[in-house]
Design a protein around this nucleic acid. Structure first.
Lengths: 221, 221
DNA sequence: AATTTGTCTTAAATTAATCTTAAATTAAGG
DNA sequence: CCTTAATTTAAGATTAATTTAAGACAAATT
């Protein structure tokens, strides 16, 4: 995997470069936003990681610029601990994920891989699992000759569960992921969306792809 | 594992630093609350360990401040022996665990690992012992080709026993640990949960992984 | 700008899983 | 034996998840 890291903090930049390399992740390190911008089109990266706060060109400005130029790459934003409203702006500006400082390197690595997998989905456009085909193009779930259309939130939810199939994803995790950190939606909202998904899934094959783990979360088996 | 230890007592601080290092735990030692506060954001720690009573900024004040800043790190409080209401207050203020002085270093280590484990939702995590595999990811216990699912309390209980395998864990210890100090559940509750566990374990391999030590507690052999 | 349509969110009632307790039974230690 | 501690079973309480339906919101259409 090859990533571009835009990080102005010397210490953190060096540290991450080293630690990620040890995980077999190839890191190109840009020390500010403008430098990062130059690198973006010079090479092909699996994920772009931007620090929010940077001199010259901040992560969010860079993100907006790239999206404005119709750049489709996967972008992960590193945000400061307390700037919650920033995160909202970040996701709304088209970031694919965010990570709050200080963070665990293992978690960063996990999220990078998750984004990579997502990238693969968008290039191949589908996730296949036990006969089910989740299609990123048409936002539909297919099984044999049957098909159901998913709504935006349903799709996001199922995609996340299918990418992490076999793993139990805690409820608050899903809420964070699908609705965003800042969002103050009711817990129950997740239940309702799971319900919709199950209904649609069972209309395809009359089985339950999603198992609930009481007190913890959900899991695609 | 890397932890931040805020402890004003020179003797105890030095001792813990040494002993934990011997257990392969990297300790950053801050001698008062304010110093600890500075360190928190400078590095990334797996667990933050704060002594309750400290000059300048007490452990509980530091805890509250960090939580107020939306810091999500795992925090363990060291509390004096008799201040039960303090411990309750600590947990209510957002501490993830507490430990009563004087404590056993092995106990501290066990709790540190337990806290670490909770953090790692992404990375798969298992405890292996005599062919049994306790899987934190699926909340299941596996043996050869067989598998049983555990419920939340069962899992917690077995996890604690397996982390401390070979050691006899007193009953009230388990009650405190799994149900929390403030909880006033009946003693018998523990028996029932042990019973459930034994049932499930024996369905895997028809043996008893958990031995009871009469008058004391239980032990995973 | 108003209306319609589709989607998302909330609230409240129902159902189901899990936890807890009580009481009876069994086993261990003095 | 007698006492105490642990085990076991089953029922009751509690908590979490599911379900339904209605209201809010946003996007598209007129």
């Amino acid at each position: 995997m090859k990533i571009l890291l835009a990080e102005d903090d010397e210490h953190l930049g060096l540290l991450l470069t080293r630690l990620l390399k040890r995980q077999n992740i190839n890191v190109k390190w840009a020390k500010d936003g403008e430098e990062a911008y130059e690198f973006v089109y010079k090479d092909n990266y699996d994920v772009l990681v931007f620090d929010w706060m940077m001199p010259k060109l901040s992560g969010i400005e860079l993100l907006k610029r790239l999206r404005g130029e119709n750049h489709q790459g996967k972008i992960l934003l590193l945000t400061a601990k307390d700037a919650i409203q920033d995160r909202v702006a970040g996701l709304n500006s088209g970031a694919d994920d965010y990570l709050v400082k200080p963070f665990d390197v293992a978690e960063l690595v996990a999220r990078l891989y998750a984004l990579c997998r997502r990238k693969e989905i968008y290039t191949s456009n589908t996730i296949n699992h036990r006969g089910y085909v989740l299609d990123a193009n048409s936002y539909s779930l297919n099984y044999k000759d049957k098909s159901v259309e998913l709504r935006a939130k349903e799709y996001k939810l199922l995609e996340f569960l299918m990418i992490n199939k076999g793993q139990i994803i805690p409820r608050d995790f899903l809420l964070d992921r699908i609705w965003g950190l800042e969002s103050d939606v009711t817990d129950n909202n997740l239940d309702v969306h799971i319900r919709m998904l199950r209904k649609k899934i069972s209309s395809l094959n009359d089985e339950d792809l999603i198992t609930t783990v009481r007190g913890v979360g959900y899991c695609v088996k």
